[in-house]
Simulated assay, not measured.
Amino acid sequence: MATRCGLLTWDCPPPEAEVRWVYQPVEVQYPDGTWEVGRISAWWTDDAGDLWCRLRTPSGGARPQWTRYDPEAVQLLPSTGI
């Protein structure tokens, strides 16, 4: 999605004042059906109302990536207690 400097990327994140920082463990399902544990470190809602998350997985590389949140592919896990 677009930000003030173009597409939403690591080098061009959403405006800081609009980002909600969190620590949210997740499980991510890939198109091939495999699952991987990861975490969301921030949420952002764009002007169109789409929800984006700053997602990091071990196989995703060194940096977290902004991605449109898909509740079918990214399952939120409890962050406290059981």
Rank of each mutant, 00 (worst) to 15 (best):
Q29V: 11
R20V: 14
V28W: 02
P25H: 02
V22L: 09
W44K: 05
G33E: 07
V19D: 04
G38A: 09
W21P: 06
G38Y: 02
D32R: 10
Y30V: 01
E27V: 15
Q24C: 00
T45S: 12
W21L: 11
Y30L: 12
T34E: 11
D32L: 04
W43T: 08
W21Y: 12
Q24K: 01
D32K: 08
R20M: 11
I40C: 14
E16G: 00
W43M: 08
P14Q: 04
R39I: 05
P14Y: 03
Y30K: 13
P15F: 02
W44C: 03
P15D: 14
Y30F: 15
P31N: 11
W35A: 11
V28Q: 07
A42F: 07
E18Q: 15
V19T: 10
V37M: 10
D32N: 15
V22Y: 01
P14C: 05
R39F: 14
P25V: 03
A17E: 15
S41K: 08
W35S: 12
W43I: 06
Q29M: 13
V28H: 07
V22D: 01
Y23N: 09
P31H: 07
V28P: 00
P14N: 03
E36W: 06
W35E: 13
A42E: 08
W21T: 08
Q24S: 02
Q24H: 00
Q29P: 00
E16L: 10
P25Q: 05
P31F: 01
P25E: 00
V37P: 02
W35H: 15
E36N: 10
T34Y: 08
P15H: 08
P14V: 07
D32W: 03
V19E: 06
D32Q: 12
E36G: 10
E36C: 08
V28Y: 03
W21I: 06
Q24R: 07
S41T: 15
